[in-house]
Simulated scan of single mutants.
Amino acid sequence: MPNTARWAVTLTLTATAVCGPLAGASLATPNAAASGLYAPSALVLTTGHGQSAATATPERAVTLNCAPTASGTHPAAVSACAELRATGGDFDALSARSDAMCTRQYDPVVVTVQGVWQGKRVTYERTFANECVKNSYGTTVFTF
């Protein structure tokens, strides 16, 4: 599949994950809206091999919804949402586990995040040296 088609699929998933949960909120009745207000937190995380998102081949995409409850296609949605809440949604604050043992092999892996965190637009990109280093960050957020 050409890179253009892969990115089109990734962007479609992003739009669906971000806009889908937001579309239903406008249909709520005033009483229902007053009793269940929350800032939406819906993210699409992608991963692929390459130096940057522009040159990487997307390999996997997952959704992560953290409000009102943890859900999505992320394999550890509850833990990932808890970790993001602990950092206030700051992906740069996620740090590597101290017990992680990774080789120094350079096989760059790019992670991107698009969506909304507590009602604010989020765009994040980070390149890790290899898959092991990526998986050591934030315990579960980037492990998918």
Rank of each mutant, 00 (worst) to 15 (best):
M1Y: 05
P2T: 03
A5H: 06
A5E: 09
V9M: 14
T10H: 09
T10I: 09
T12R: 02
T12M: 02
T16A: 15
G20K: 06
P21R: 10
A23N: 04
G24H: 12
G24R: 06
G24V: 04
A25F: 05
A28W: 01
N31D: 15
A33K: 14
A34Y: 08
S35Q: 15
L37F: 15
Y38P: 03
A39C: 04
P40E: 09
A42C: 02
V44S: 10
S52N: 02
T55H: 08
A56M: 14
T57F: 12
P58I: 01
E59C: 10
A67I: 00
A67M: 08
A67L: 04
P68V: 04
T69I: 14
T69L: 15
A70P: 12
A70G: 11
G72F: 12
P75A: 11
P75R: 07
A76P: 14
A77F: 12
A77Q: 06
S79L: 05
A80H: 13
A82I: 08
A82V: 05
L84E: 12
L84K: 13
G88T: 14
G89P: 14
G89A: 14
D90A: 13
F91K: 02
F91I: 01
L94F: 02
S95F: 06
A96P: 09
A96M: 03
S98H: 11
S98P: 12
D99W: 08
R104N: 10
Q105I: 03
Y106C: 07
D107T: 03
V109K: 08
V110C: 05
Q114I: 00
W117V: 00
Q118A: 15
Q118V: 13
Y124Q: 05
Y124A: 01
E125F: 10
R126M: 03
R126I: 02
T127A: 00
T127Y: 00
F128S: 01
A129Y: 02
A129V: 15
E131N: 06
C132G: 00
C132Q: 00
V133F: 00
K134I: 05
F144G: 10
F144L: 07
